[in-house]
Amino acid sequence: MKHIYSKKTIQRLYETMLRIRHVEESFVEPILSGTIRCPVHLYVGEEGVAAGTLAHTNKDDIIFGTHRSHGHYLAKGGDMRAMVAEIYGKETGCAKGRGGSMHVVDAKKGMLGAAPIVAGTVSLAVGAALSFKIKKQKNVAIAFFGDGAVGEGVLHEALNFAALNKLPVLFVCENNYYSTHMPLRDTRPYDNIFELGAPHKIAYARASGNDVLKVYDVAGDMIQKCRVGQGPAFIEFLTYRYRGHVGPNDNIQGTQTDIRPKAEVAKWKRNDPIRNLESYIARNKILSRGEQDKILKRVGKEIQNAHAFSQKSRFPDPKTLSDYVFKK
């Protein structure tokens, strides 16, 4: 189904991608200077997936993320200030400085958490979908995971269990072709992750994650299927991270560990999700230059404020070390 995009939709997708891109880039300097110390896995290059997919969700839909989930958090409506403060390790952070970049969470917005255990949150999303089924709620749960997660047994168990119970859960594989340093060709015999949907006889698709409108279309259809009880569904988005596996450039104690061919990185940068949408906007005269600048300015200001807020905020009081082990 071909969607007609309203100006509002385009603007929202554009702004979401810009917010993700620019906030991610804003972490580079503080990481290099050592102000930000926790492991930060940048999503730069993959923004189209989060923006396009999560444009179809409401706050009662539940998502779970990975170690690389700033984009999911923001696209789901998470508070940017709280996320930035969390990455600085401050008490004002979304997890009060107890989680860091890999554990962004905004429960009020339905972003119920993220975790770096590869495929570790996939079954959690299945469980959220199970809760919707039991409560007869028309909501959707989404599991984001990478191509590396496809090597984990639990993903396959989760697919089977979700299909067996017809759960409203969308499996979103963000295939960025690298599982840390391992290229996909070294981890899988075929480049066909999306076909995992086939043996479970669930809806499945593959699309470019760098074309946000494609993402919007495909994810929209799949989410709708889940909402009307035709779930689960599986999507593989093909995308690429511009930066290292962790940090700006995979500089591990002075050694450059990013071994990806320069030509490959350059090829993907020519297929940039933001630039792609900007071309579409220009071709179809959807936003004026002035309107785009206004968005860009707004985003820049939001990011600046988030950093200022975070830097001003306090670190957690050491006396509170044992808080939150158990809920009373």
């Binding site: 570790g120 959690l124 749960a141 989760a158 269990f161």
Partner: peptide, 23 residues
């Protein structure tokens, strides 16, 4: 009352996820 296939990891994870979601 949900009987399950032998998938201890995913089933337990689903229970964790359902608990996180308020069950």
């Amino acid at each position: 009352v949900i009987d399950t296939p032998v998938s201890e990891n995913a089933v337990t994870g689903a229970a964790v996820g359902a608990a996180i979601a308020g069950m």
